[in-house]
Design a protein around this nucleic acid. Structure first.
Lengths: 252, 252
DNA sequence: CGACAGGTTGACCGTTATCAAAGATCGTGG
DNA sequence: CCACGATCTTTGATAACGGTCAACCTGTCG
């Protein structure tokens, strides 16, 4: 079982920031906050108040400091983790030791599901990118909830479905598009997120973008410059990007 | 609604075999066969006999000839398709027109789910690779079944979960490994499937392997030769491959 | 037997990784 | 609040990897 205690049993190998000591601790009180936690998650927030309270009963909260691992590849899966505050990086390590950024979780997102319904062994790593607080539901408790409230299963089904679509789309892009195109599409999607306006802030470092897009920071740097010279975008200070030609980006 | 009729309303653009006329037709009879159909599918075969009969009630069967499309990107999703006999190629087309093979469905596999729980619009193409027979459950009927028998949702959850894991693993490979490595891992997994013995038959044409692995037939040809020269494998007649050094394959 | 898709081989070139080094930025502690 | 160090980012030079094009095989099927 991966309680906070055994999820931070060491430093992971490829991140040198450290200061990685384990200060996670459980909150046993504040029913109020727990309420909030349940109600911000799409998979639960459709339920009636009293059902949410029932869920809040079985939820435990944990804190993670920047750089700490919530779980690692090889860990036994034992809980569903819902982000209440902070950000979590989900990444994989290839046999050859290269890292690929899979996803970044923000408040309301959840993880840990894959292993829960499967082998029970995590294949990816989850690392807090900053001070982060998560709600956890243990495997057994989740099982009980799913049986009692089938609507939850349907919500998770919808979430899985959309993630699968997303993941397969991403795979297809890797298979068929070159870096420049993947980057262009990535930028276009960033704009979608921050709806309105033609400007946005990159949601992660260029290093992480490189990892996410399966390339190197050097190439990202060069390709962004190229896109700028071609008049598609404009790079501003503080990771701000202005899209000058969204149409064009999609056609690259 | 994508009944057999409107799923074969034309030839798709990039496959020249044709003889692509639409001969699909519905079977309204044979309760026996329908029984078999339900019982071979992992997501249903755990149910009691009478529940399976209930499902058989709402199932419709369709035939597709080689090359026909079950659905196409852009189609409105309206049903879950379960393969009873034959093989189905699921592939995506990039904006630039390149094709990526996502998966090959064999009897017992299902598809159409993604769109069912989401937007409702397919993003991929499904094409019969040979004479194929599918069972379909319409969107509404499936919804009813899921509400009535939550256990089905849990089964689908497990299936989604494993596909997600698989898809994310594949994405990570594209992001971090070169073609030679991806091919080596692919071969190793082929061997896993055909458990026992160190020999197997490639599950698809080399052209399709190339599409699946995001490369070209030329490169597959060359890399297979290279793996052979390095003593990892031996290519035999009729797409047979003998693995000489499984350990080595994993380390490439 | 002929047609045709699939497969192989060779020559070439474009894209992107790599290595190195310098410059910018961020967070931290004094 | 500034200074320091660490990390991130940029830029350049180089080379490997793999895509493309073209020609030629090969097996299969009518």
């Amino acid at each position: 079982m991966a309680t906070a205690k055994n999820t931070c049993d060491g430093h992971h190998r490829h991140h040198l920031t450290s200061a990685d000591s384990c200060h996670s601790h459980e909150h046993k009180d504040d029913g109020g906050l727990q309420d909030i936690c349940v109600s911000i998650v799409p998979i639960f927030n459709h339920l009636a108040k009293e059902q949410m309270n029932e869920i809040a009963e079985v939820i435990q909260h944990f804190d993670y400091k920047k750089g700490e691992n919530i779980y690692r590849a090889g860990d036994q899966s034992d809980a569903l983790y819902i982000v209440r505050r902070g950000k979590i990086r989900i990444y994989r390590l290839s046999d050859s030791g290269k890292e690929q950024l899979v996803r970044i979780l923000r408040p309301g997102d959840f993880t840990g599901e894959l292993a829960l319904f499967n082998e029970g062994i995590h294949e990816a790593y989850a690392e807090a990118m900053e001070e982060t607080n998560v709600c956890t539901i243990r495997r057994n408790d989740l099982q009980t909830l799913l049986n009692k409230y089938p609507a939850i299963a349907l919500k998770i089904l919808a979430e899985f479905s959309s993630r699968l679509e997303q993941s397969e789309k991403q795979t297809a892009r890797f298979a068929t598009e070159k870096v420049e195109t993947r980057l262009a599409l990535f930028l276009a999607e960033c704009l979608d997120d921050e709806h309105s306006s033609k400007e946005f802030v990159l949601p992660m470092s260029k290093k992480d973008i490189a990892s996410y897009l399966g390339t190197t920071p050097e190439t990202i740097s060069r390709k962004l410059l190229e896109l700028e010279e071609l008049g598609y975008i404009k790079q501003k200070a503080k990771k701000r990007i202005e899209i000058l030609d969204l149409e064009g980006l999609h056609l690259i």
